[in-house]
């Protein structure tokens, strides 16, 4: 493997063994990807896509079932402790020590990495500033808001100055304002040259943070590229979203589909989506059919639309 590549996966598979009655489960079904130093790389997919399973294999805490995986040029099967010493992990749940203070959480984590007390205390100063938690340094974690806990979890994962930072759904469950603060912090890390691997089921998050991403569904990769490439190659520039009265919805939806407006029409349970490079023009055509939608919205196509097209399902159920 070339030395620019930090991670290389070929035919990577995760199969959870059968357990009292349940058959073996194929969570990751042979995926290929690679990652260069300094990149922000994303796994976008709905719940159950196999994102966390992939992340756990990358962190050398879940054995690879088949295929090959190299992380930092090392083999997770044999060099687990060395890999883990050089990466940072933000698990899907915060898993903080709630009984301890913010500072103690950082301190304890540094000790796991064998860092000397003095070095940890030096790093804590910078990490508290990074996480904007200086005022909360001696507060018990129990007392923190969700956003603060998430920032602390990220600060904690940086205590060993990792070369790769793995973030599993970093903003799930946070309110919009807390998400923006967090994105801004992650942006800063990226700017400082930390390689980021992020999983998310939010397309806006993937668009905001990732230079390159894979779209995962049912344990497989269904598309690879930058957010822009994925949209350009898979979907039109704009989307026209129409809502009609519930009882007429299906029938009108069918009429619009038959009229073949734009490139493609999706009749979703709650709305009709017309994919067209010019949404306004498509709307004019709808009006020309003397249809009166309750609401009509023209917006830019997003990764959500890409996902819908590739898998026939929404990202968030």
């Amino acid at each position: 493997m070339s030395d620019r590549l930090l991670v290389e996966a070929r035919g990577l598979t995760k199969t959870y063994p059968a357990r009292n009655g349940t058959p073996p489960f194929h969570a990751v079904k042979g995926i290929d990807f690679e990652l260069a130093r300094g990149e922000a790389f994303g796994f976008l997919g709905p719940n159950g896509a196999g994102k966390s399973s992939t992340m756990r294999m990358l962190a050398a805490i879940s054995p690879v079932s088949s295929g090959s995986l190299s992380v930092l040029g090392l083999d997770p099967a044999g060099d687990g402790p060395e890999i883990r010493a050089r990466i940072g992990v933000v698990p899907q749940d915060d898993c903080l020590d709630r009984e301890l203070t913010v500072r103690e959480n950082l301190y304890v984590y540094g000790r796991y990495f064998g860092l000397k007390k003095q070095m940890i205390n030096e790093r804590i100063v910078g990490l508290l500033a990074f996480a904007q938690l200086e005022e909360k340094a001696d507060a018990q974690v129990e007392m923190l808001s969700g956003g603060m806990r998430r920032r602390l979890t990220i600060a904690r994962s940086l205590i060993n100055e990792p070369e790769i930072l793995l973030l599993d759904e970093p903003t799930t469950g946070l309110d919009p304002q807390a998400r923006h603060v967090l994105w801004e912090r992650l942006y800063r890390l990226k700017h400082d040259g930390v390689t980021l691997i992020i999983t998310t089921h939010y397309m806006d998050e993937a668009e905001q943070l990732c230079d390159r991403l894979v779209v995962m569904d049912g344990g497989k990769i269904v598309a690879v590229g930058s957010p822009r490439e994925l949209i350009e190659t898979n979907i039109t520039r704009e989307v026209l979203e129409l809502r009609f009265p519930v009882n007429a919805h299906a029938q009108i939806g069918e009429r619009i589909r038959d009229a073949a407006l734009g490139e493609r029409t999706e009749v979703l349970p709650d709305r009709v989506a017309v994919y067209a490079d010019d949404g306004e023009e498509a709307l004019a055509q709808v009006h020309a059919m003397s249809l009166e939608p309750i609401t009509a919205l023209v917006r830019r196509a997003t990764l959500e639309d890409v996902f819908l097209k590739l898998t026939g399902r929404s990202l968030i159920d």
């Binding site: 883990r84 992990v89 698990p91 749940d93 915060d94 898993c95």
Partner: peptide, 11 residues
């Protein structure tokens, strides 16, 4: 608490 989920990714 899932404490160990944060510990196993360390050395």
């Amino acid at each position: 608490d899932h404490s160990y989920d944060a510990i196993v990714p360390t050395p």
